[in-house]
Simulated assay, not measured.
Amino acid sequence: MSDWSGVSEFVAVSETESFTAAGKRLGISTAQVSRQITALEARLAAKLFYRTTRKVSLTDVGRVYYQHCRQVMDGLEEAERAISNLQSSPRGRLRITAPVTYGERTIAPLVNDFALKYPELEVQLHLSNQKIDLVEEGFDLAVRLGKLEDSSMMAKRLSGRTQYVCAAPEYLAAQGVPHSLSELEHHNCLVGTLEFWRFQEAGKPRSIRVRGNLSCNSGQALADAARKGLGLVQLPDYYVQRHLDSGELVSVLDHFNEQDDGIWALYPHNRHLSPKVRLLVDYLAEQLA
Rank of each mutant, 00 (worst) to 15 (best):
E149V: 08
G146E: 10
L184V: 07
A167P: 01
S215L: 09
G138T: 02
N129Y: 02
H187L: 07
E170A: 15
E137G: 02
E137F: 03
E136F: 05
L181C: 06
G203H: 03
R211I: 09
A142H: 00
L194N: 12
A173P: 00
L172C: 04
F196G: 15
S215N: 10
I132E: 06
Q130Y: 13
C166R: 00
P169W: 10
S180R: 15
L184G: 01
G176D: 09
L134C: 04
L222C: 06
Y164C: 08
L172Q: 06
P205L: 08
H187M: 15
E170N: 14
G138L: 06
T193G: 11
F139P: 01
L172H: 03
A167I: 04
L194Q: 15
Q175A: 11
E185W: 02
V210F: 02
V177N: 08
V143D: 02
D150L: 09
N217D: 14
G146P: 08
H179C: 08
P169K: 13
L141H: 00
K147H: 11
E201S: 07
Q200I: 06
Y171G: 00
H186N: 13
R157G: 04
V191W: 01
R206N: 05
S151Q: 09
N217V: 08
D140T: 03
E183P: 01
S215V: 04
G176S: 07
L190P: 02
V210A: 01
H186Y: 09
L145Y: 09
R198W: 07
R211H: 13
L134A: 02
F139R: 01
K156H: 13
G203C: 09
P169C: 08
L172V: 04
H126I: 13
N188V: 07
A155L: 04
K147V: 08
Y164R: 09
S207L: 11
A155C: 09
L145F: 08
N217Q: 13
G146M: 11
S159K: 12
S218K: 04
M153W: 08
R198E: 11
W197E: 01
A167C: 06
L148D: 07
I208H: 07
T162K: 15
K131M: 12
V143C: 09
S215K: 15
N213K: 15
A202G: 05
Q220S: 12
L121T: 01
A142L: 02
G203R: 07
